[in-house]
Amino acid sequence: MSVLTAFISGVTRLNDFVGRWIALLIFAMFAFLLLEVGFRYLLNAPTVWTNELTQMLFGVYAVMSGGYIMAHRGHVNVDLLHSQLPPRKRAVMDIFTSLIFFIFTLALLWFGIDMASESISSWETTYSAWNPPIWPVKLAIPVGTGLLVLQGLAKLLEDIAIAFNLDYYRPDQSISEGEQS
């Protein structure tokens, strides 16, 4: 069972690590937008790349957040019923609804891979005036979704352990409930 424990904590650590780095993109987006305003307003020389690069970074920033947020229980839900239940019943319910989670995320993963591989096969660019490669941003869809799927698997394993009282996972050992926003 220690493999499962290692998987759960490994995935959570991975998402935590990735998230902490991706979160810093906010500084880049801020800097590029400010730069564009400066170039256009002060120098009358707008650039072709700042807004487009900001847009691309934002896309990566958004889609890569899924796993990190799940690791920190940050995806909001309706807790009317949920919060009333004892932990084991709640885990059983979460095992049931994870079906919907996996239907969505696996469909997205499948077609995200499809979209990204098509883009990579032609080294797709944006064909704007700046014309940068767009495939890395498309690649972020399956990568971000993949991280989310992994975290979903980790959560499913946790829920199974709670529901059936298995010993590979104990909620008090969880490292995923560290930070509260």
Binding site: I26, M29, F30, L33, N51, T54, Q55, F58, G59, Y61, A62, V63, F104, A107, L108, W110, F111, G112, D114, M115, V137, K138, I141
Partner: peptide, 26 residues
């Protein structure tokens, strides 16, 4: 048709006006 789901996400990622969200939140 699931391709539509992926494609809607791609479209949302490319919406420039949404860039204001992280900045105002920050």
């Amino acid at each position: 048709s699931f391709y539509m789901v992926a494609s809607q996400i791609w479209g949302t990622m490319g919406s420039f006006t949404l860039v204001a969200i992280p900045l105002f939140v920050f």
